[in-house]
Design a protein around this nucleic acid. Structure first.
Lengths: 348, 348
DNA sequence: AATCAAGTCCAAACCGCTTTGGACAAGGCA
DNA sequence: TGCCTTGTCCAAAGCGGTTTGGACTTGATT
């Protein structure tokens, strides 16, 4: 059932039917209702591709997920982010199209998406330091919003980010206030922008208290359970092991915890852990009482908001780039406590 | 740069240019090369929507992810499955479009996708017992492949599934061989098809050995860390606690492990755990030596294969529905051992 | 009564591609 | 030489919508 057929059935021209359905004023209310009713009765749905072709709007948003050829990790926060964004899209009649792309031909993809008119805008995932995608997209003239930011990029662009620096600074300060001096940072890969900012926050907090950072207490790895485990295990074997861990993700923290338990240390008393909690739907940080003390910010909500920003930008292309900085909460759980008095756990 | 412009530049008709680019025979090889070169030089990419409209093929596949309104969990295996499928699509020039849908209006979505011509086929995620989507899609006449199966559906359809029954049967037998008699099943929600099959496998193994299943040792919950933890904790508090856990997912197992450790039980000696390992990229089951004994089957690979099946079905619509049953490996890790001799851990 | 504006509808062009049905020239065959 | 293929190209008609530029009524205005 297409427009022409419907028009024929109604004894109207396609023009009028189209206008009736799209709420244009130059159509009699009575006929409009007649058209509406007929459309519903015959289950008429306009062909998206035809609309796109005629209007030039694709009514679709692209999410480009880079996969590094070396370590093929699919970021697990991605699923929840997408879920959030998806809600926004379906509320607004947009489709979401996903491209899983080996990061060596990302450029091609963006040009492709643009030239082939598949999407109206793009959400950029996993920005890195000096990310080449942002100038590229600006140059192409593609509306886009970055989930995160890219240190080093000078041209203005739209982004939504969590205040990673600040939240890790606060978390570090919290540990310092509890008396911890040897605080380890189990970070993500530090060419990722969020990881850079978290490290900065951590270092800032330390330097404010006049504590020199110890390189052996800082690890930068993929945020997997295994990497978290290995990093923590190595650090716990040090002559001066850390008394607290600051961990960039819930997943890494699982590994850290494993290492901690292998060393028969009790969480929250012998050793403290603060994690960043993206509020993943399948990895809740406890129930009413949080397990981990955490810097918390819902990535799903970020997805919702990022998508809204992008749709807004598409609707109003002339306005200046938008930015939104979300503050993470610092929530207190059972995984932190004062540093064991006098007996900083040394290996003998 | 569109076809008409390109044709103009070349002094050819759009027809010829189109044919040259699409490899039709009725065009001189010399001109074809000329066209190809010009296309590359001007970065010409045909407009997807126009192609779609003209050919009737959308060159896109839909993934419909149902979100239950009650428990808004995004299945974490989903990210890896998508990554696998995405590879197949990009290799074949297909786009992937994702719909996050509250499960109460899934019907509408399928009709929509069909009528609006957004996609050529669909991959169905998370099939349930008597899943209404399958007859619906068959009726609509939409090519689709199910990731999983749906017990109770009589009409034939295409699917790709892991042999869940068998792998859990084998896992249970493995535990029985180690002397375990009180084996707990921490399952997913048992309206999900895979969970039903896993339970069946578990029960089959028990009954073959003449062991009556104990309802208190069977839990059916969302596969989150928290649910796993709670279920395991409750079971460990029983007068006759289990000596082994069979856990439906790596994520739940994290919770089970937490409960185990809270009870000061050592994994692989005091208590055994077998998990199902989807080989999630961010949750590897150890490195060379697996941490958990596990039934293993890569969900990413499943994504790749499912996508291939669907593309094949779209290319050859007349052929009968295809099915593919993958066998999970049973890999031995450090989380299983013989039941502690004589001293089955009772609570006193 | 003539003019004008508003209301309601339609024909046709267009979006960018594919594809059908020739047109035309050159070469092969009788 | 005339006819038939074959090779090479093109004009034009779609695909299913939107949108521009009228056409025709009707009622109000002068």
């Amino acid at each position: 059932m297409n427009l022409k057929e419907l028009a024929l059935k109604l004894g109207l021209s396609p023009t009028t039917v189209s206008r009736a359905l799209n709420g244009y004023p130059e159509v009699n209310e009575a006929t409009r209702e007649r058209v509406m009713a007929a459309a519903k009765r015959h289950n008429y749905r306009p062909n998206t591709r035809a609309i796109s072709l005629a209007t030039g709007r694709a009514m679709a948003i692209g999410h480009v997920i880079p996969i590094t050829s070396k370590h093929e990790i699919v970021n697990p926060v991605f699923a929840d982010f997408i879920a959030g964004a998806g809600e926004t899209y379906s509320r607004n009649g947009y489709d979401m199209i996903l491209s899983i792309v080996p990061d060596d031909d990302e450029d091609r993809i963006y040009h492709d998406l643009r030239a082939r008119g598949t999407v109206d805008g793009i959400i950029v995932h996993g920005p890195r330091m000096n990310d080449p995608r942002l100038p590229l997209l600006t140059e192409i003239g593609f509306p886009f919003v970055v989930h995160g930011r890219a240190t080093g990029t000078s041209t203005p662009y739209s982004w939504l980010d969590v205040n990673n620096r600040r939240s890790f600074q606060r978390a570090t300060e919290f540990l310092l206030d509890l008396g911890h001096r040897r605080i380890a940072l189990i970070n993500g890969l530090e060419f990722m922008d969020f990881a850079i900012r978290r490290r900065t926050g951590y270092l800032d907090a330390l330097s404010t208290r006049g504590i020199a950072p110890d390189p052996v207490l800082m690890s930068s790895e993929e945020m997997t359970e295994l990497r978290g485990y290995r990093a923590a295990r190595a650090m716990l074997e040090l002559y001066h092991p850390p008394t607290a861990f600051l961990v960039s993700s819930m997943i890494s923290a699982l590994g850290v915890r494993r290492a901690v338990e292998e060393n028969n240390l009790r969480l929250g008393t012998d050793i403290s852990i603060i994690i960043h909690d993206d509020e993943l739907s399948y990895l809740k940080n406890g129930d009413d009482v949080p397990i981990y003390t955490a810097t918390r910010s819902s990535v799903r909500d970020a997805g919702r908001q990022t998508a809204e920003m992008l749709l807004d930008i598409i609707a109003h292309p002339e306005t200046a780039p938008q930015q939104r900085l979300l503050e993470a909460e610092l929530i207190i759980g059972q995984s932190t406590g004062p540093v064991p008095a006098g007996q900083t756990p040394h290996r003998t």
